[in-house]
């Protein structure tokens, strides 16, 4: 699922805060603004390393609940496919179409949320799901 801002914007925002001053090595020595910048850089770094793989995993999760043909026909590229499939899933959930299959749906959603938390707050993910 698309999470914004993406890495380019996060790096730009962090750079605007940091200016020419490097981040303090010890997090305890950082100001609040510097801590925000460090967080933004960490998320952007995750995106650079794992962004493409995360999209592949998400499409695989969708393929487990819908036909591969449905997944492939959803958009021109991975990003558009994921956006279209999430839009469809959200609408179907609201309409009650998934009421009869809560287990499969919860598995998909938990995997999605885990992936997003691995990006934005891996420490929190670990505290809630040590096995993750």
């Amino acid at each position: 699922m698309r999470q914004r801002p993406g890495p380019d914007e996060l790096e730009r925002l962090a750079a605007a805060i940091l200016g020419d001053d490097p981040l303090q090595d010890d997090p305890k020595d950082r100001s609040y603004a510097q801590r925000l910048a460090a967080k933004a850089l960490a998320i952007a770094g995750h995106d650079r390393l794992h962004g493409a793989a995360d999209r592949t995993v998400e499409l695989r999760l969708f393929a487990a609940v819908w036909d591969a043909a449905v997944v492939n026909a959803a958009g021109a590229d991975d990003e558009n496919r994921i956006a279209a499939l999430n839009r469809r899933l959200a609408a179907e959930i609201r309409a009650g179409d998934w009421d009869a299959a809560p287990g499969a749906l919860r598995e998909l959603l938990t995997a999605q949320v885990r992936a997003r938390l691995a990006r934005t707050n891996p420490k929190y993910l670990k505290s809630r799901m040590p096995e993750a």
Binding site: L89, A90, R106, L108, Q112, V113
Partner: peptide, 8 residues
């Protein structure tokens, strides 16, 4: 952006 987890 849609949010299936929140919809669920």
């Amino acid at each position: 952006d849609p949010n299936p987890a929140l919809e669920y």
